[in-house]
Structure formats: C-alpha cells, structure tokens
Design a protein around this nucleic acid. Structure first.
Length: 871
RNA sequence: GGAGAAUUAGCUCAGCUGGUUCAGAGCAUCUGCCUUACAAGCAGAGGGUCACUGGUUCGAAUCCAGUAUUCUCCACCA
C-alpha cells in the first residue's frame, strides 16, 4: 500500500466535516457538564467571507474545539445580522438595476424583495464558514430578524421606553442623504478632505462696506440666519448692531456677537447657518435665530434656497461659487484641509440635519457597563483597549436609534389622527392606550422608522437563547453568561458596549466573561485589506491552495490578540508545510514492520525524555491558552511536533532501512502520536481527524473521533531529564558541525570520545552513536592528542579525524574561546568585587554570579589544558 | 486638538514585577546534502549599540523624562 507523499487536504476536508455533522459533534444541549459558550459575531447577510472573518472565526473555532476536548459542553452559536442600512442599500441598488425605483414600491413590496434577496444570498457566508471547519451548532443558527429575535427587540424598546431611557425629539442628527436616514454618531466616519475655503463678501445694509466671512460650504449661504463676530474683536466694533445682506438673494440678516467665534480663524467672522451645522444650531438656539432648512432629504436644494432649487448640494456649491464670482463677492479662495463626516455604509457625506428622531439615553445605562470592565468581571484582551472603552463610556452621548429605512424592526410607536403618539406592542394595545388616556384612536398608524441594527445585535447573546422574552428558560440559564466573545476592536462601542449595557439591564449580569479583540488584517504594506483596494486574497482560494488547516495555521501564526496582522501568503505556506510534516511523520510510522523483541534501552530512554518534554510543552501551551496567546500556543505546539517529536524522537527510535521495529516501541510511538494529534486538533482539525482513524492507532468505533477525544492532561515532568538530553543534543550537533566545517560526509562514521562527567551520557550512548553516526564511542579520562575537541557543558569531547587536525587552527579556535570566557569572567569578577552589588542585590543573584564565576573558571581550566596538550 | 500604543535580527513578533531562561523565536538568507517519512525536506552557519538623548540604579532592552518616527481611537472650529 502506498500513501501519498504529500497531504491532500481536499478529500479529508469534505469527508470529515460531514462526518462530524452527521454524528452531531457540534450539537450542544444543556447537561450536567460545565458549559462553554461563544456566540458568533453575526456577519452581515450582505457579507462574503473576507480575511477578517477568517481570522475571527478560526480563533473561535480553536477555542471551542479545545474547550470541547477539555470535557466542557461547548456551544458555538452562529447566525447573521440583518444589517439594516447595508442590506437596504444593496437591495435598492439591485432593484435599480432591474429598473425598479424604491420610491415606486410600497413598504410591503420592498420588504418582499428584501426577504427574497436575504433568502438567496444571506446564507453564503455561513456556508463558507463550513469550509473553514467551523464547529458551530448549526441547528441554532439565528438571524437578527427571525420572528423571536425581532420580538425581543420590540420588547426591549418598550422596556427601555418604560424605564425612561427612550425618548423622541427634534435634534440635530447625522443625516445620510444617500440612505436618506439618520445615523448614530458611531456610524459616521471622519476623514480629512482637501477642500476650498471661500472668502465671501457680505454687504452691510445701507452701506457700501462689506464684511468678509470664510466658509467651506458656500451652498448654505441661503440658509444663513446671522453673521457672528466676537464682541472683543476691535476690527468689527463699528459693525455691532448692523445688518448684512446675504449675497445673491439679498436677504437681510443681523450681525450678532458671541465669544464662541475664534478671532484668529479666517476673518474672525462666522456665518451662522442653524439648520446645517451643529455649532451654528447651538448658536442659533442661544440667540434665538431663525432656522432655515434649505436641503431636501436627498441632499438637493429645496425652494427655501430660492435659487438653484433641485440642484445637488455639491453641484450647487460650485455654481454658487461661480455666481458669487460673477457679482464679485468672492474675496479669495484658499485650499483647506478639514474633517468631513462620511456614512459608514453608503460613504455619502453626512449632512447635519434637524429632525424628529428616537433616542436612547445612555448616561445611566453606561455606568454599570463601565464597572464590569473596570472591576474585571469582563476582561478585555488585550487590556490596552480599556482606556478608550472608559473614555467612550464616560463621554457617551444619547444614541439616535431610529432609522428612516424599511429593512429592520419597526418602532412600536403609534400615532393617531392628531399625531399624538403612544408606545405599544400591537395596534390593539395602542388603541386601548389612546382610549385609556382619553385620546382619539382614530387614524391609527404605526411609526415608519425602524430601529438601528445595533439595537438588535446588542441583544444577541441573550436573544439567541430566547433570554429576552423568556429569561427563565433552561437554555438561557445554562448558557448565559457566555464565556468568550471574539471580535474586532472597531466595534467596541457599536456592539460590545451595547451588549454589556443591554445584558446588564436585563440580567444584572455581563453577557460574557472575556472579550478577545482580534487585530486588523493588513497587507504587507500595512494597508487594511479591503475589497475596494483589491489587496485581499479570497479566503476560499487560499483554502483551495493551501488546505484549510494550512490557512488556519497561517492566520494564527502571527496574530497576537489585538495586534494587527500583517498577512502574507507565506504564512499559509508555512501552515501547509507543517501539515505535510505531520503527514509524513505518519507515513514513516505507518510503514514500519514489527518484531516481538522488547524495546531497547535506548528507545526507552528516548521515550522517557520525550514524555517529559511533552508535558513540559503542554504546561506552556495551557498557559498560553489561559492568557489567550493563541499564536504562542500554536508555535509551542509546532516546535514540539516538528523539532522534538519528528527531528529528535522519531529519528532516535526509527529502525534502519527495512528493519522491523519492536512492537513495544511502536505502541509507545503511536501513543505519543495520538497525544500530538490531540494537541494539534484545535488548529488543524481535518488533518488530525484523517490520521486519527488509521488502524495503526488501533480499533476505533464510529464515534471515536479526535474532535471529541479528551485533551491531554498534564503529568509531572522532570526537568533534569530534559536538561540531560539537551546536552546529548549538543554533542550530536557539535559532531555534525565538525563534519560540516571539515566537509566530511554524514555517511562517514567518526569516532567520539567523551571525558568522564557528571552527566550520565552512557544512558544515551546508543542515541549519540546513531544520530551523530559514530563508529566508536568511548569514555576517556585523559586528553586525546591531535583530536578536535569541544565542550558540551563542562564535558570535553574529542573527535579523532583521519588526518590529524591542523594544530594551529585548533589553537586559534580554543584561544578565542578562552579569550571570550576570560572577558566574561572579568565582568563577573567586577560585579562580585563591587561591595554595593554584594550588599544590595538579592542573595540568590549573588550566588548565581558566584556559580557563573566557578563555571567559567572550570571551563577555562579545561580549555587551557587542551591548549597545552596541542603543544 | 485630546488620549492611548508602538519602535528589539532582512520580515513578523516574544522578552511578566530591572541581575545567563537577557539579547530570543518563526520565517527568510547563506553553505552542504535528491540520507528510502517529508526538497512543502535534512544538517550546519551567519544576521541586532534592543529608535535617539539624558536620568534613576551597584546594574537598564526592561523604570523615568525629553526627542524623532509610526499607528490607532476620540473630537463640531467656520
């Protein structure tokens, strides 16, 4: 039987994923075991798997698989988010392609299209996660607009309303003219933009004099309500109380005074446009100015602008500038950089707009959510994010939760014919409430607006277990609070903070214990990977090319929590190579014939060493996991397998070509191999499962899979044994190094002599002979003339070459080493001679220095003897 | 403008409470090897004034201050 020389991932991946599914290994139901729960950050239904998801979900899968193997009841809940504005934008665009305008559709018809779209494309990303090997409990898959989850959202709105957190009012909000909806502050991305600063002349009423103001937005001059100067500005004292004419439309507006105006900036004059700027709005409130809204919802000018009606704001800007130039009311135009807000989803420039919206008061709600993180009930990993979390929580503003969209949960508020309103879950309740309040229930209609998506995702850890509607249900009580939440730091406020807030309001408990914040996946140039830049590889292609296990390893190799990941396909290559290494280690073992002879002493010693080394590594791996240092856990596993298991242990026990191996040893090897497969499984689920079922590991019944095998537990280990073997390794390496430098083939056997020592090298005699290819290993008392010598620790070793060594070269080499040691000795002596060191340093540090001194002196003595021996 | 973080081999990063687990790892590089598990491999080797300048200390990659560069988050200056 021949086994492929390289691991072929494709076959294994298809086979085992469905096998796991069929056997229900991903399923979880409450039982007496300790639960371990992760809720997946629900990707948008519009989403296609990108590198960020890949990293994120690989981490979650590693955690969940390890927890499962540790005997916990592991439950990973998948799902998708309806992503109100993102999806609606997408559906609108798609309809437009078909020649359908959203304006011509009724709400119901639009939603029919949207649902169709969701059914068709909404599951793509979850399918892609299967390819990644995600061991989610798919039967629990949820969607944020599932009827039960939507009901939870409505219930929460009503709850928060009753608790006094939700209110309705006219406020200045961030308006997205493309999505035609209000946005929360978090959905606005500020970017620096090159703009023009226009200096515009306003004529003083009844005078030929002009006053000059600077603005980046000349298209809003028609909405000006005043010109504001600083009362302390001597330049404008004579204008106090005067009026000016708005250019082009000659509307008269007053000059007002306020210290808010920065005398240094621009001309020291500010045009006040209360309807189109937040600061101007506040200024307008203060001075009781008229609010003139000249923009339509879509960002075009309305009739109040008087001119350029119907023109888009940016076109209007250019046209106004031109018109102003024609009438010579432009003083100058300067280049100017300023921060402009953009819609996170549609990328449209945000327009500050006054409108009636629903808000959620955050101040009180934020307090306990801050405390959880402050007192460690919730741990942020890495901790460095705490500072910005705290800052946000302490400065949080009220949250605009209404959206002028159709795709989402409709706000449960109802209006009557007089536009009075009540909050009620159903139309009947609304009617009853109106009547109870002695108001008319005629012309009852529901609020048009839907809720911000994040209002629903904030409930996610609860609502997936129906914990909002039914908090006493067994599942919720069992799985909540969840354990780890793995997500990107970008949504710390959008999502994490709000989950904590809502979770606490309902349960007085945090929704999770640890928040693992992954880094951003960047390309080699440090740019964020994104579709628009086209610098992101397609994860599916990567998996095809390097195998899923290879890509998973590649992702994790360089992603310490919270640090950005400079991704390069070479990491996947490394992952693939690692998979192949394990595959070939298996091929080796698989090919062995056996004999009934008992294991040799050398094999037994090697096994003892590896067993100790395994446990040492396992302790490290567990520590890394405890600290959420997944890449370190993986690297420790990698080195244990590649270096210790393959390069040393297997090389030690492997029989000569075509010779059989002792059955006893094979069993030992197979035992270790299985432990190693278990350690590797969370990282490389497919390869490990594929190998696990081979007959060399014994009979397995159908359910005996590595995915549900017990994770190795730590056994005590003896560091002395490991150190002893390190010296053995050193001897072998030194001999190989001698070969290399002298150009002697590894096939030529060499004699080796080891001076008697405190370490029991005899125990490893056979191993040394084998791996260093020694013809004759002897233990000697005296120095050997004419041999190449080296030190392993304090033990001197000699390799007698056919031609005696070049004495001069040897002399130089040894002299150099003595020189180095002497220098080292001087520095140690200096330290020990320093009274203040001896007095102030800890006793163990001083003792350590003394040891170093003795050690160096002993080595120097040996080397000096060798030197004189050379003659 | 405010806050936080980073700067250690060619690259990506470890180095916890200051003293050989203090200069490390993986990858890449170089030199030999097609040694029958693996060239996606084996063996060996070479790479760093720990950004810069001061300070604290018997002793600093590690603590403090400043400088430079970079990144992230927050912020309404026309």
């Amino acid at each position: 039987m021949s086994i492929a020389k390289t691991y072929n991932p494709k076959e294994a991946e298809e086979k085992w994923y469905s096998y796991w599914m069929e056997n229900g290994f991903f399923r979880s139901t409450p039982d007496e075991r300790e639960p371990y729960t992760i809720v997946m950050p629900p990707p948008n239904v519009t989403g296609v798997l990108h590198m960020g998801h890949m990293l994120n979900n690989t981490i979650q899968d590693v955690l969940i698989r390890r927890a499962r193997m540790l005997g916990k009841n592991a439950c990973w809940v998948p799902g998708t988010d309806h992503a109100s504005i993102a999806t609606e934008t997408k559906v609108v665009a798609l309809l437009k392609e078909k020649g359908i305008d959203k304006k011509d559709l009724s709400r119901e018809d639009f939603l029919t299209h949207a649902w169709e779209w969701k059914e068709k494309y909404g599951g793509i990303i979850l399918k892609q996660l299967e390819k990644l090997g995600a061991s989610c409990d798919w039967e629990r898959t949820k969607f944020t607009m599932d009827p039960d989850l939507s009901e939870a959202v409505i219930d929460t709105f009503i709850r928060f309303y009753k608790e006094g957190y939700i209110y309705r009012g006219v406020r200045m909000v961030n308006w997205d003219p493309q999505g035609k909806t209000a946005l929360s502050d978090e959905e606005v991305i500020r970017k620096e933009v090159n703009q023009k600063l226009y200096y515009i002349r306003y004529k003083i009423s009844g005078s030929d004099e002009y006053i000059i103001i600077a603005t980046t937005r000349p298209e809003t001059i028609m909405a000006d309500s005043a010109i504001c100067i600083n009362p302390n500005d001597p330049r404008y004292t004579h204008l106090k109380g005067k009026k000016v004419l708005v250019p082009l439309i000659d509307r008269e507006i007053p000059i007002i005074e306020d210290e808010y105006v920065d005398i240094e900036f621009g001309t020291g004059c500010l045009k006040v446009t209360p309807a189109h700027d937040l600061n101007d709005y506040e200024l307008g409130q203060k001075h009781n100015l008229e609010i003139l809204d000249i923009l339509n919802d879509d960002g075009t000018l309305n009739e109040k602008a008087q001119i350029l009606i119907g023109e888009d704001r940016f076109i209007a800007r250019k046209k106004i500038a031109k018109l102003l130039e024609e009438v010579e009311q432009i003083e100058k135009i300067e280049d100017y950089k300023s921060q402009v807000g953009f819609s996170e989803r549609t990328d449209a420039v945000i327009e500050p707009k006054l409108s009636m919206q629903w808000f959620c008061k955050m101040e009180t709600l934020a307090k306990p959510a801050l405390e959880y993180v402050e007192n460690g009930t919730i741990k942020l990993i890495p901790e460095k994010f705490f500072a910005s979390y705290k800052h946000w929580m302490e400065n949080v503003k009220d949250w605009c939760i209404s959206r002028q969209l159709w795709w989402g949960q409709r706000i449960p508020a109802w209006y009557n014919e007089k536009n009075e309103w009540v909050v009620a879950k159903t139309e009947e309740e609304a009617r009853a409430t109106f009547l109870a309040e002695g108001k008319s229930a005629a012309g009852l209609r529901q609020e048009d607006d839907v809720l911000d998506t994040w209002f629903s995702s904030g409930l996610w850890p609860m609502s997936v277990f129906d914990g909002v509607r039914n908090p006493e249900n067994e599942e919720f009580k069992y799985y909540y609070p969840t354990n780890d939440l793995v997500t990107a730091p970008e949504i710390l406020f959008f999502w994490i903070a709000r989950m904590i807030i809502m979770g606490h309001d309902y349960t007085q408990k945090p929704p999770f214990k640890n928040v693992y914040l992954t880094g951003i996946v960047r390309d080699k140039l440090g740019r964020k990977m994104s579709k628009s830049l086209g610098n992101s590889p397609d994860p599916i292609d990567l998996m095809e090319q390097y195998g899923t296990d290879g890509v998973r390893v590649g992702m994790l190799l360089s992603s310490p929590a919270g640090n950005d990941l400079m991704f390069d396909v070479s990491y996947c290559e490394q992952g693939r190579n690692f998979a192949n290494k394990i595959w070939n280690a298996f091929r080796l073992v698989k090919g062995w014939e056996t004999t009934d002879s008992p294991a040799t002493e050398a094999q037994k010693n090697a096994a003892t060493w590896f067993d100790n080394r395994f446990n040492q590594a396992l302790v490290e791996i567990n520590e890394h996991f405890d600290n959420y240092r997944l890449s370190d856990a993986l690297m420790t596993t990698y080195k244990l397998i590649w270096d210790d298991f393959c390069a040393w242990y297997l090389e030690l026990v492997k029989p000569a070509y075509q010779a059989p191996i002792e059955k006893e040893t094979l069993d030992t090897v197979a035992g270790f191999f299985q432990k190693i497969l278990k350690l590797a499984h969370p990282f490389m689920p497919f390869l490990t499962e594929e190998l696990w079922h081979d007959e060399i590991f014994g009979e397995r019944d159908a359910k005996d899979c590595v995915i549900v095998a017990e994770y190795p537990s730590v056994a005590p280990f003896d560091e002395k044994i490991i150190k002893e073997f390190d010296s053995v390794k050193q001897i072998i390496s030194e001999v190989r190094s001698i070969r290399n430098s002298k150009g002697i083939s590894p096939k030529i056997e060499l004699p080796l002599a080891i001076s008697t020592s405190d370490i029991n090298f005899a125990k490893y005699q056979d191993s040394i002979v084998k791996l260093a290819n020694i013809s004759d290993l002897s233990f000697v008392q005296d120095k050997i003339q004419g041999a190449v010598s080296f030190l392993a620790g304090k033990t001197e070793c000699y390799v007698q070459l056919e031609n005696n060594v070049d004495a001069e070269a040897e002399h130089e080499r040894i002299s150099k080493e003595i020189e180095y040691l002497k220098g080292f000795l001087i520095s140690v002596d200096k330290k020990l001679a320093n009274e203040r060191f001896v007095q102030n340093a800890k006793p163990e540090v001083v003792a350590n220095e003394q040891n170093k001194k003795a050690d160096a002196e002993a080595k120097i003595k040996i080397l000096e003897e060798s030197l004189s021996n050379l003659g």
